[in-house]
């Protein structure tokens, strides 16, 4: 009449599912892992400040792509007046030369798989 075993089973299933991230972490997670970025080999400063680049670099790259591909406009003027070539492979990766040590660190941490590399080749790597 009260179906207590079924209700309790339901509650146990609910608790296991809702706390799943905790069990996942205990079973084989490395929750304390913090991605360490490889410092660029050269260059004084980036095309924009660190805080902006950290959160919004994809906006900048997307704007660059549109401007280069649609308007042929390859020159980017940084806030400090310095001019850069709008190029992922030639400008960004010129300083941040190790994609695995830089781009991939945070992208893997958050399972972000940008489609930059569908077209772009990674400098120094053979095309497959």
């Amino acid at each position: 009449m009260y179906d207590s075993p079924k209700v309790l089973l339901g509650l146990v299933i609910f608790l296991v599912l809702i706390t799943f991230p905790i069990w996942y972490n205990i079973a084989g997670g490395t929750a304390e892992y913090v991605p360490e970025l490889e410092k660029p080999v050269k260059g004084e400063n980036c095309v924009a400040d660190t805080e902006y680049m950290r959160s919004s670099h994809m906006d900048l790259l997307n704007t660059w792509r549109n401007e280069v591909v649609r308007d042929g406009d390859r020159v980017y003027t940084a806030p400090d007046g310095k001019k850069y070539n709008k190029s992922l492979s030639q400008t960004c990766l010129d300083c941040h030369s190790n994609k695995e040590g830089f781009c991939d660190k945070c992208h893997d941490y958050l399972k972000i798989e940008p489609y930059c590399w569908d077209c772009h080749i990674i400098p120094g790597k053979e095309m497959k």
């Binding site: 799943f20 991230p21 972490n25 490395t30 929750a31 893997d108």
Partner: peptide
């Protein structure tokens, strides 16, 4: 959103 809680994802 599980990707924000799980490492490795």
């Amino acid at each position: 959103h599980f990707k924000f809680f799980a490492e490795p994802v």
